[in-house]
C-alpha cells in the first residue's frame, strides 16, 4: 500500500471518529443550542462523514488499487494524489471551523467558507484528473 493511501485511509478513520463525536452534538441539539457558537453542526457532521470518511477512504483505495496508468507511472501522478489529499483536508477543516462561526452570526468568517469551497472543489478535480486515465479496459 503506497504512503499516500496510508495517509488517506488513516485520516479517513480519524474523520469517522470525529463525525460520530460531532454527531453527539447534533442529537443533543437542545442542549447544544444553549451554546451559540455550536450552531451549524449538522452540515459539519454530514460532511465530516461523507467527505472526510467515505470520500477520502475511496480516494485512497482507488489510488492504490485501480489499474496501472503506465509502466513508468503505475499510479499516475503521485504528487497529484498528495495535492488532492492536502486540498481536501485543509478545505474540510476550514469548513468545520467556519460553519459554526457563520451560523452563529459571525459573518466576517464567511470568506473561510469560500476558501474551503475552492479548496475542496480543486481536490475533487485533481482526483478526477488523476483517476480518469486509470479507468480503462484491459
Amino acid at each position: 500500500m503506497p504512503a499516500v493511501t496510508r495517509w488517506y485511509v488513516k485520516t479517513s478513520l480519524g474523520y469517522l471518529l470525529a463525525a460520530l463525536l460531532v454527531g453527539i452534538a447534533v442529537v443533543t441539539q437542545p442542549v447544544v443550542d444553549s451554546f451559540g457558537p455550536l450552531a451549524g453542526f449538522m452540515p459539519v457532521y454530514l460532511h465530516l462523514f461523507v467527505v472526510g470518511w467515505l470520500t477520502q477512504f475511496i480516494f485512497g483505495v482507488t489510488f492504490w488499487l485501480f489499474p496501472k496508468y503506465s509502466r513508468e507511472l503505475p499510479r499516475g501522478y503521485e504528487w497529484l494524489a498528495w495535492t488532492t489529499f492536502g486540498l481536501l483536508n485543509v478545505g474540510l477543516l476550514m469548513r468545520a471551523a467556519g460553519e459554526p462561526l457563520v451560523a452563529s452570526g459571525l459573518t466576517a468568517w464567511g470568506w473561510l467558507l469560500v476558501a474551503s469551497a475552492v479548496l475542496q472543489w480543486a481536490a475533487g478535480m485533481c482526483f478526477v484528473v488523476n483517476t480518469w486515465a486509470r479507468v480503462k479496459e484491459k
Binding site: V102, G110, W111, A117, V118, W121, A123, G124, M125
Partner: peptide, 21 residues
C-alpha cells in the same frame, strides 16, 4: 461516476461559497 463527482463537487462548492458570502 467521476463525471458525477466533478458535477456534485462543483454544485457543493457553489452552495458553500454562497453560504459564506
Amino acid at each position: 461516476a467521476l463525471v458525477y463527482l466533478a458535477a456534485g463537487f462543483t454544485f457543493g462548492a457553489l452552495m458553500l461559497a454562497n453560504k459564506g458570502v
